[in-house]
Amino acid sequence: MSFINPTETADKLAVVETLYRFAAGIDLRDRDLLASAFVEDAVSDFRPAAAKAGFDYPVLEGRELIVAALSDSLAQIDTTHSVSNPRVSVEGDKAHLEAIVEAQHLPQNDHSRHYLMKNRYDVELVRRGAVWLIERVTVDNVWRTGDPGVLSGV
């Protein structure tokens, strides 16, 4: 019989909650909620996923730039992000999270078009006080379907 450490379990849930805040911030167009997921000098790297979708996307550095870039690039797109299969390891005030995130994108003016991506997220987090925050997130694509033009507004 193995012992379940309640503190470790609470930390793991709090780490996953950080990714939920990230996803909900995008879907709800809530810049404050999205910002609440990141440290000030966070790094966001969507290059692996973007390359597989056929376009360039720069590494974003800094919470303000990440929030502005994601919010602005998705301003005309309705999105839903679903997080699954989270795997978390915690060592002191550092954590590592791997998860699958399904991201559905539809132009606000034409829901007959879509672009669906199943992405693998690799996330490094740090505990700040009572919350966990993303220091670095790298997104790679597992598969995708639909019209990639949806992402570029074409």
Rank of each mutant, 00 (worst) to 15 (best):
G62W: 06
R63S: 08
R63V: 04
E64C: 03
E64I: 02
E64M: 05
L65S: 14
I66M: 06
I66K: 04
I66C: 03
I66F: 02
V67S: 03
A68R: 12
A69G: 04
L70N: 08
L70A: 09
L70W: 09
L70C: 06
L70K: 01
S71C: 03
S71G: 15
S71W: 03
S71L: 02
D72R: 12
D72S: 13
S73I: 00
L74Y: 10
A75V: 10
Q76W: 07
Q76L: 12
Q76K: 09
Q76N: 12
Q76P: 04
I77R: 00
D78K: 01
T79P: 08
T79R: 07
T80D: 06
T80Q: 10
H81R: 08
H81T: 05
S82V: 11
V83G: 06
V83W: 07
V83K: 06
S84I: 10
S84K: 06
N85P: 01
N85K: 11
N85E: 09
R87H: 13
R87I: 14
V88G: 06
V88C: 04
V90G: 01
V90L: 01
V90N: 00
E91L: 03
E91A: 11
E91R: 09
G92S: 05
A95H: 07
H96C: 07
H96N: 14
H96E: 15
E98W: 08
A99F: 11
I100D: 15
I100F: 15
I100T: 15
V101D: 05
E102A: 13
A103Q: 04
A103K: 00
A103V: 15
Q104H: 13
Q104K: 14
Q104I: 12
H105I: 01
H105K: 00
H105F: 01
H105T: 01
L106A: 12
L106H: 15
L106G: 00
L106P: 01
L106I: 03
P107N: 02
P107L: 01
P107I: 02
P107K: 05
P107F: 03
Q108L: 11
Q108H: 13
Q108E: 14
N109T: 13
N109H: 13
N109Q: 11
D110M: 00
D110E: 05
H111E: 13
S112E: 12
S112P: 02
R113Y: 06
R113K: 14
R113I: 01
H114V: 02
Y115M: 13
L116W: 08
L116A: 10
M117L: 11
M117H: 02
K118G: 09
K118S: 12
N119L: 11
R120K: 09
Y121H: 13
Y121K: 06
Y121W: 12
Y121M: 10
Y121D: 10
D122V: 11
D122S: 11
D122A: 09
V123R: 05
E124S: 09
E124M: 07
E124G: 07
E124L: 08
